[in-house]
Nucleic acid binder design. Structure first.
Lengths: 242, 242
DNA sequence: GCAGGAATTAATCATTTGATTAAAAAATTT
DNA sequence: AAATTTTTTAATCAAATGATTAATTCCTGC
C-alpha cells in the first residue's frame, strides 16, 4: 500500500531504497576504468552530456527526461538509475555550468600578479573563447542565479567564495588605481557591469544581432574575436580620469 | 464520440466551436464599457495581468495555467474561455512585452532630429527607467528572441520592421560620423552591443550583482540612475577617434 | 562456464497539467 | 419578468511526464 508517497515522504522514506542504485553505479565507476559496454563513453557520461545540452539550451522546466534519454540514446529508466531523478541531474549540470562560467576568470587571475590592463586582456580573451564554445552558457547561468535557487543551496557557498576571491583580486587592484588617481572614484559595480556586459551581452543577444545585421555564424564569431582586443581598450578609456 | 481529438485536428475542427466564446467576450468588450461584475478590472484583464507576471518571471514552460488562474483569482476554465489556450495567452503577453521592450527606443527616436550624443542620452535614460519598472523584461524578451520562435512568427514582421527603423535612424547618423572621422571605422554591431550591454546587462545580472556588492534594492536603483548619465559619456569616449 | 552483481529494458504507475463540458449564476435584452 | 445571452464554476478527461518495478541481458571474478 502507499507505493509512491510523494514529496516530503519520498525524500525520507524512499531515499534508502533508491540510493543504493546510484551508489553502486558510482562505486563501480570508482573501482574500475569503467568500460562496461563496447561504447567509447560511459553511459553515465552520455546521459550527462545529453542533459547538459538540453538543460543548457531549454532550461529545467522545458526539458523532458524522455528527451534527455532519447538524446543520449538510452532507456529512460537509466536516467533515474544513475542520477535518481531529474532535479538531481539538473543540479549536477547546473554546478558544472557555473564552474565553467566562473572558472575561466579564476584560472586567469588567481595567484597571478599583473596590471589591471593585463587582467582585462586575459579575462576578455579567455571569456570570449569560452563563450564561443558555449554560447548558451551565460543565459543558463544568469537565469539560474537570477531565480536565486542556486544562490541558496549549500554548494553555493563554494561558488560565492570563489566569486569573492575574484572580486577581491580585482578590486584591490582597482582601489589602488583609484588611490593613484588613475581611475575615477565611481562605484566598482559600474566597471564590472560594463566589462561583463560588453563581453557577455552580445552572446545573450546573439540571435537578434545576427538576424538584424545579417551575419553568418562565421561573421559573428569574427566580430567576437575582434572584441577580445577592443574591449580592454574601451575599458581603459572608460576608466581614464574624467 | 471522439470528444477531444488533439493537436492537428483540434485546430481545424474545434476552432469553430471555441472561437465564438472568445469572440463574444471581445464583442461585449467592444460594445460596452464592460463592467460585468462589481470588480474594478475586467476578468480578461486580470488574467492577462497574472499571466504577464508569471510568464515574464518564470517563462512559458515553468508556468502552469493553474498558477495563472490562482494568481488572477479566477476559475481555470475562464483562462481558456477568454484566451483559448495557454499558447495563445502566452503569445499575447510575449508581443506586449516585446513592444514594451522596443517601444521605449522608438518613442524617443522616431521622427526626432538630434545629435548622436542626444540620442544616447535619451535612449539610456528612457531605457533604464523602463527597466527599473520591469526588471524581468530583458530576460524574458531575450530568451524568447533567442529561441527564435518569436522571430519566425507572422507578427515578427512588424516587430523587425520597427527594429530596422531604429537601426537605420541610428546608423545613418552613425555612418555620417564615421565619414566625418569623428568615430572609428568599426562594425556598428560593436557599438550597439556595448550600448545595449551597458544598459541591459546590470539588470540581467542584478541578483548576482546585488548579492555580491551587498546592495539593497534602493542602492541598486540609485546606481542604475547614475548610469543614465554615465553611459552616454562612456559611449562617447569609446567612440572617440582611436 | 557459472554464480552473482551491474547494467539495461519494457511495461506500468501515479501525478500533473492543459483542456473541455455541462450546468449554474449573472447580466442583458425584450 | 421572461427570454436570451454572457460569464462563471465544478467536475472530468486525456495526454504528458517523472518515476518505479520486475524481469532480462551483460559482465566479471572465480
Amino acid at each position: 500500500m502507499a507505493k509512491a508517497r510523494h514529496q516530503a515522504e519520498r525524500k525520507a522514506v524512499e531515499r534508502k531504497a533508491a540510493a543504493p542504485a546510484r551508489k553502486t553505479a558510482k562505486k563501480s565507476a570508482a573501482k574500475k576504468p569503467r568500460a562496461p559496454k563496447s561504447k567509447d563513453v560511459s553511459t553515465e557520461e552520455r546521459i550527462k552530456e545529453a542533459a547538459r545540452k538540453l538543460f543548457t539550451q531549454k532550461g529545467f522546466a522545458a526539458t523532458r527526461t524522455r528527451d534527455i534519454a532519447e538524446e543520449a540514446g538510452i532507456n529512460l529508466a537509466l536516467l533515474n538509475y544513475y542520477f535518481r531523478n531529474k532535479e538531481k541531474l539538473f543540479e549536477i549540470i547546473m554546478w558544472e555550468n557555473i564552474q565553467l562560467f566562473i572558472g575561466v576568470i579564476m584560472q586567469n587571475l588567481e595567484g597571478k600578479d599583473m596590471s589591471l590592463e593585463q587582467m582585462l586582456e586575459y579575462v576578455a580573451s579567455a571569456y570570449i573563447d569560452m563563450l564561443l564554445k558555449n554560447p548558451d552558457l551565460p543565459f543558463f547561468v544568469l537565469s539560474n542565479l537570477q531565480s536565486g535557487a542556486a544562490l541558496d543551496t549549500a554548494k553555493s557557498g563554494v561558488f560565492l567564495e570563489r566569486i569573492d576571491n575574484l572580486r577581491h583580486t580585482f578590486f584591490n587592484r582597482f582601489a589602488e588605481e583609484i588611490r593613484k588617481g588613475h581611475v575615477p572614484d565611481i562605484h566598482p559595480l559600474h566597471f564590472l557591469a560594463n566589462f561583463m556586459g560588453m563581453i557577455i551581452f552580445p552572446f545573450v543577444a546573439s540571435r537578434l544581432l545576427m538576424n538584424r545585421f545579417d551575419l553568418s555564424q562565421q561573421e559573428f564569431k569574427k566580430l567576437m574575436e575582434e572584441r577580445k582586443e577592443l574591449i580592454p581598450g574601451w575599458m581603459i578609456r572608460i576608466m581614464g580620469a574624467q
